[in-house]
Design a protein around this nucleic acid. Structure first.
Lengths: 331, 331
DNA sequence: TTGTAAGCGTTATCAA
DNA sequence: TTGATAACGCTTACAA
């Protein structure tokens, strides 16, 4: 491996000058810098990152901590963050917590020990509060939280605009002509789900309507099925679901009960999971925009991870399951 | 930050002894080791990984290079590898190539510069050959390739048993009673797809049947639709598809044409994408087992990344789309 | 079993 | 604008 010392010897100068030339310091003559760069290229020099890191006291690596990387949402966030960070010359070290507190602690320790430049994370279900995070990272390490955030921790927080998103989705159902609209809500101890329910209610209130039904803790196909059948009996003609999986179950149940979608019954889900576009009928869904969440998280880190919340808008993707007017017209 | 020197001073011994004690060397008295460990815990010592890496000339990080991490297949491979590597005290640095040769070169350089312990990779579509890989990594760095492999490179290669898998899938269709079986094949310049076609043909030959139809380059829903309609006209009653997306398109087209699945027509896909379980009818599929691919890749690295190929079996997941006998019986 | 001493390759400080 | 020197914290021959 070629070192700066070898370059220095080859040129009859000292390592300090070579170091300055290579790191773009202004305190080096243009001709010298050029000679150094040429020689470095000629010898195939590549900076020893470990030595550089040791001397500088930090690495050019950013740690990302997520519950699981093989979940589309998280892997897309990582993908978005990675693009921005690579652009800035930073690498990404990824840790999974498998939703466990212990693994989260271990991951944060690893990152701290590697002297990463900062941490971007979404905490595990197993972490009931966030005190351990600052205990491990200390007061200096830049911290960015996304999606699942402890609002009382220092640093930047990047979250979806769940209230506004659910509001838009519900308004869309109203505009399509549905009038007896219910919701499949998630776990209300999660801030994201609680906000979606609020957005749903506000949209109906603003339209002068009452919620036709509200089903809590409905996030898997099975609960969606049961809720949808009940909703049908109660006279509902549309549902805003805080998740796509429960919406999927609802659609199946409604189809089996002889309801036509979207002619008789409209549905909008949330998350824009990849299967929503593949279903028949395809499912309208409120997209979480995870890549953008990742990009914003990375940008917030690059900007210094200052305290504060950044809100990423959600995008409503309209597909067949809520396309009432057009379906009616085509008849 | 606490250093080994401070621990040494506190105990009236030298840093070397502390270092030995902390790294579990046998050349240190049990009582001394115990005192060191106690003191280290007391002071909250944590090893400075950068200094350790510099001295040892390598880091405890393994690089993983994939085309995209927000693809279920790759993120699952990474997840599997990460589990095994973390267990062994190694961290994972992830790089995306976005299927581009240039990004792959950049990623490999980054890893090399970080002096990672080894590289686990699946090359990008943009890399027509693998000479750049060894050019960058040199002769020393352990190399493990998975799924997309250049067989002429040194190191370990971990691949699915595509021949055997397609053979099993096709046999399953035969056993279910289908007799006019065709295939939706992928791009034959990809080794994986070519092997699946061979497995399909062999299975039929062994059953004394002829391929009823073979459609090449069919990997998206649209091509699947077209092929399925043609297959129906040609008298096919089943298809083995080398991908799930084309199988999805095929099912939709057949349903619209009035074919009942699996009663009139059987289908098995490949990859076991998550939507296969959510469809109606659900799609039988040949699972690629990406987590296992990741685990085996990590294990191969830990074992020294010796030259050779490790073959991971594929698992046939039988769902409704090929469940002919049972569907018939229930009538 | 422990201590001594050197050095990994870079960068920061200070002096020239 | 460049050079000399030290230091980042750790590991490892080698010596005791």
């Amino acid at each position: 491996m070629v070192t700066i010392t070898e370059i220095a010897q080859a040129l009859g100068i000292t390592p300090s000058t070579v170091s300055r030339a290579l790191s773009g310091s202004p305190r080096v003559k243009a001709s010298t810098k050029e000679a150094v760069l040429r020689k470095a290229a000629e010898l195939g020099y590549e900076r020893n990152v470990m030595a550089s890191n040791l001397r500088k006291g930090r690495s050019d690596i950013v740690g990302i901590v997520v519950p699981r990387i093989n979940r589309e949402f998280f892997s897309s966030v990582i993908s978005g963050a990675e693009s921005v960070l690579n652009e800035a010359g930073l690498s990404v070290l990824i840790c999974q917590t498998h939703e466990r507190y212990e693994d989260e602690v271990r991951a944060l320790r690893t990152l701290k020990n590697n002297r990463v430049s900062g941490v971007i994370m979404s905490h595990s279900i197993g972490s009931k509060d966030g005190t351990h995070i600052l205990e491990i990272l200390g007061d200096e390490m830049p911290l960015v939280q996304f999606d699942r955030v402890f609002s009382y921790l220092r640093g930047a927080k990047i979250v979806n605009d769940n209230f506004e998103g659910a509001y838009k989705a519900t308004c869309h159902l109203v505009e399509e002509g549905y009038r007896h609209i219910g919701t499949l809500a998630g776990y209300l101890n999660s801030a994201a789900y609680a906000l979606r329910l609020k957005g749903f209610r506000r949209a109906l209130a603003d339209a002068g309507l009452e919620p036709a039904a509200e089903y809590m803790d409905s996030i898997v196909p099975e609960t969606g099925r049961a809720a949808a059948l009940d909703a049908l009996r109660s006279g509902c003609d549309a549902l805003y679901s805080a998740g796509d999986f429960s919406a999927l179950g609802a659609i199946r149940a409604l189809q089996e009960a002889g309801s036509r979608i979207p002619e008789d019954f409209g549905i909008v889900g949330t998350a824009n999971e990849s299967f929503t576009a593949l279903m028949s009928p395809s499912l309208s869904s409120l997209a979480l925009n995870p890549r953008e969440l990742g990009r914003q998280s990375a940008q917030a880190f690059l900007d210094g991870a200052a305290d504060g919340e950044i809100i990423v808008p959600m995008e409503l993707v309209i597909r067949q399951s809520s396309n009432h007017k057009q379906a009616i017209c085509q008849k």
